[in-house]
Every structure is written in structure tokens, then in C-alpha cells.
């Protein structure tokens, strides 16, 4: 038992805070759902009381950080901010590109982003990895298992690009009077 003290280096402080936040969010979001009674629960009953339970647990967990020194395992450690940003970003990049730009571009962009977190950039290795993974994605998933990917961009996107080129070319052509 340590003295009463604010310890931001205690994991429990932050865990409690997260629980607390989630609990408050849950109660807030449930406010519009009919509560009902214990014997005839409405859709709001479970989430609301779960929210209160979450708040209680959060308070208890968080409170503990004010009274005890953390053990080594309970001490907060440094966050890996670069991978934390890059990994979800590369997943999101794949998701955003796959439907419009097709498999090749989505996989390439994803790999580039994911690899940005690796020091000592190795281009040959990256290209090798890209080829192998693309081959698996294409032959196993798209052809073999029938996941509906476009290999390259969607036809309508291809048309859009065509229109765009046309649009860009038009004033040039008009200026030169052709």
C-alpha cells in the first residue's frame, strides 16, 4: 500500500480511465433507448446498466492507482507510436483502395505504408515480398476462392480516368485549334 498519490505511470490509472470513458459513453448513447422494467426489459435496460457497471469497475480500477505503487508489470511503458499509426493506416489504405483501384494498387500501397515502419529500407526484399503476396492474393483468393476483387481498377473508374484525360486534353486541343 503506497500513500495516496496521483500516479500517471500506473497502468491501472489509464485502464480505469478507459473503462470510465466507455461506461459514460454507453450510458449516454443508451439514453434514447426505452428502459423498460427489470421483468420486462426494453432495449435500453442492458446497455444502461452495463454502462453503470463499467463506470463502477473503472472507478475501482482507477482508484487503485492512487493507493498502490505499481509493480514492474503494472508500470506504463512507452507507446510505439509509429507502428500504431502505420499499421491501422495501411489496413485502412487497403480498404479504401481495393474496391476502386483494384488488388495490385491496394496491395502495393498497403505494403509501402506497412514497410515505412521498418528501418533499413530494403527495396529488393520489399519488391520480392510484394510479388509473392500479390501472387497469393491473386491466385489463391481472387481466382481460387472467388473473392470478388478487381485486379486493376474498376471499369467505371477506368472510364473516369479516360474522361479525365479527355477533359485535360480538350482545352489544349481547343487552344491549338485542332
Amino acid at each position: 500500500m503506497g500513500a495516496f498519490k496521483f500516479r500517471s505511470y500506473h497502468q491501472d490509472f489509464w485502464a480505469g480511465l478507459m473503462f470510465l470513458g466507455l461506461g459514460i459513453l454507453a450510458v449516454y448513447l443508451s439514453k434514447d433507448y426505452p428502459l423498460g422494467r427489470a421483468m420486462r426489459m426494453g432495449p435500453g435496460y442492458f446497455p444502461t446498466y452495463l454502462g453503470y457497471l463499467m463506470i463502477t469497475v473503472g472507478a475501482i480500477v482507477g482508484a487503485r492507482s492512487f493507493f498502490t505503487e505499481p509493480t514492474d508489470e503494472e508500470r506504463t511503458t512507452k507507446w510505439a507510436l509509429v507502428p500504431l499509426a502505420l499499421m491501422p493506416a495501411s489496413v485502412a489504405m487497403f480498404a479504401i483502395l481495393i474496391d476502386t483501384m483494384g488488388l495490385v494498387i491496394a496491395v502495393a500501397s498497403m505494403l509501402l505504408l506497412a514497410n515505412a515502419s521498418v528501418k533499413n529500407f530494403r527495396p529488393v526484399e520489399l519488391i520480392g515480398n510484394f510479388i509473392v503476396l500479390l501472387a497469393i492474393a491473386y491466385f489463391v483468393f481472387q481466382r481460387g476462392l472467388g473473392v470478388p476483387f478487381h485486379t486493376f481498377w474498376e471499369e467505371s473508374f477506368g472510364k473516369a480516368v479516360g474522361e479525365l484525360l479527355h477533359l485535360i486534353a480538350t482545352p489544349v486541343r481547343l487552344m491549338f485549334g485542332s
Binding site: L97, L164, M175
Partner: peptide
């Protein structure tokens, strides 16, 4: 993009806007 240099600038601006929008906007929405 009608005739005229001013309009050409307009056209380029439109192309730029379209280029910026295209990848972000799913093709199916168009």
C-alpha cells in the same frame, strides 16, 4: 470547356477537382 483561354483555366481547375475527388469517391457512387 467552351472556347477561350479563360475557359481553359476553368477546365483545368475542374480536372484538378475531379482528379482529387476520383480516388476518394467510390466509383459506384458515381
Amino acid at each position: 470547356a467552351p472556347r477561350g483561354a479563360a475557359a481553359a483555366a476553368c477546365g483545368l481547375a475542374a480536372a484538378l477537382v475531379a482528379a482529387l475527388m476520383a480516388p476518394a469517391m467510390p466509383a459506384r457512387a458515381q
